[in-house]
Computed example of a mutant assay.
Amino acid sequence: MSHTRTTLTRRGLLAAGVALGLGVALAACGDDKGKSGGTAGQAKPAKSGAWSYKDDRGTTVKLDSVPTKIVAFTGIAAALHDYGVKVDGVFGPTTTKDGKADVQAGDLDVKKLTVFGNVWDQFNIEKYAAFGPQVLISTTFDDKGTLWYVPQASAAKIAQLAPSVAISVFDRPLSQPLQRVWELAESLGADMKAAEVTAAKKRFEAASERLRKAAKSRPEIKVMAGSAAPTVFYVSGTNLSADLEYFKSLGVNFVEPSESAKKATGGWFETLSWENVDKYKADIIMMDDRSSALQPADITKATWKKLPAVKAGQVIPRSAEPILSYAKCAPLLENLAKAIETAKKVG
């Protein structure tokens, strides 16, 4: 995630091999070909007539018909898949080193996808051109509309091959990009009245209310959003990140690094040495579940194991880049609500 008012951007952090918003070096490359169908009942046949969609940059993309040759950032493809929209081509974390589906791939069948780039700064333009894309869809983590995982060095060439759509997840609560992807899926022919789709939205709304009640009933429970790397630990601030902003709006009591502590990362997070990992008191620790981050089971640092929340078994996963469908986001709220409801006060 980047910010125009800072010189150290999220892209810059990634490019330098440093933790991204809370992660570390990205997973290895995968390049399987094919296509994947949706889970909510395949999208309706392409509508007749022109297609248009106004994205979060204020740009309106217009095509003669509803696109069927869609290329999307993996997480967006996974979200559209949940609505029954078929995306054949992806870029971004899709497979892990052992060839299995990355957490950001959701329910996509990664063996049936055309992958143009699986790691940061990788995008096969020749393969993309041969694919014949009609539209490219990604998220944006800054207020400039920079397309996530589209390499800056080749962005102009990529833009010449197909128009792009940007969904902003920058400095706005999760509910907003969720609604935008819902609208995008509907424009692409998804059946938004399908039972699975409406049930998922109701589940999200119920989960939001559950989390609100849990936070209100247990305001003393402190939650810390963290991510681990071999040499450092990152504590995320709640501003800028869509998921944390939404959880905070529901009343969750978060550890909040000072603005001065977050300044070096443009306001995203504070970097701590493992010796200082106990700087903040927390009852629950939410840990970045992306493959780019060191997972709790693999942390061997004695200072980590001594943390009260760790000793109490009160560590839960955090989807730092949520798949933007109601089906995937509802469990995130449910898990946090349950953790708050059942947590012991240890911090």
Results as ranks from 00 to 15, higher is better:
Thr265Lys: 06
Ser236Met: 13
Met1Tyr: 14
Ile137Arg: 02
Thr271Glu: 11
Ala25Glu: 12
Met1Pro: 14
Gly189Cys: 05
Glu205Ser: 11
Ala293Met: 08
Lys54Cys: 02
Thr74Val: 13
Asp109Tyr: 07
Ala78Tyr: 03
Thr198Trp: 04
Lys262Val: 06
Ser52Trp: 00
Ala162Trp: 10
Tyr128Leu: 14
Phe116Gly: 02
Arg290Leu: 12
Ala343Trp: 02
Asp288His: 08
Lys44Met: 07
Val71Trp: 08
Lys111Gly: 08
Pro173Gly: 00
Ala312Val: 04
Trp304Ser: 04
Ala27Thr: 11
Lys311Cys: 00
Arg290Gln: 13
Arg10Gly: 15
Lys338Trp: 03
Glu245Arg: 14
Gln160Asp: 10
Phe131Asp: 05
Lys216Gln: 09
Val165Pro: 05
Leu332Gln: 15
Val165Ile: 15
Asp191Gly: 01
Phe247Leu: 09
Arg180Ala: 14
Phe233Leu: 13
Thr95Gln: 14
Ser249Lys: 03
Glu341Phe: 12
Arg218Thr: 07
Glu259Phe: 13
Gly189Ala: 08
Glu183Pro: 04
Ile167Glu: 03
Pro151Gly: 04
Ser325Leu: 04
Leu307Ser: 09
Ala156Thr: 14
Ala297Met: 09
Gly12Asp: 10
Leu13Ala: 05
Ile137Cys: 00
Ser319Gln: 14
Val235Trp: 04
Phe269Gln: 10
Thr231Met: 08
Trp304Asn: 07
Ile125His: 08
Gly132Trp: 05
His81Glu: 08
Asp121Asn: 15
Lys44Asn: 12
Val110Gln: 00
Thr146Asp: 12
Ala199Ile: 08
Phe123Glu: 03
Phe73Gly: 05
Val310Ala: 02
Leu324Tyr: 12
Ala78Arg: 06
Ala28Val: 12
Ala194Trp: 06
Phe170Asn: 13
Tyr326Phe: 15
Thr146Trp: 02
Ala229Phe: 10
Tyr326Asp: 09
Ala130Val: 02
Gly23Ser: 14
Asp171Tyr: 10
Leu174Asn: 04
Gly145Ser: 03
Lys281Cys: 06
Pro93Phe: 14
Ala199Ser: 12
Phe116Asn: 02
Ala155Ser: 15
Lys213Glu: 06
Lys86Glu: 14
Glu245Tyr: 01
Pro230Leu: 05
Val315His: 05
Thr60Lys: 07
Leu272Glu: 01
Val150Thr: 11
His3Leu: 14
Leu22Tyr: 10
Gly117Pro: 04
Phe141Arg: 10
Arg11Thr: 09
Gly17Thr: 01
Tyr53Glu: 01
Asp82Asn: 11
Pro93Asn: 09
Ile125Lys: 14
Glu334Leu: 12
Tyr53Asp: 03
Phe170Cys: 05
Met286Ile: 00
Ser249Thr: 01
Arg212Leu: 02
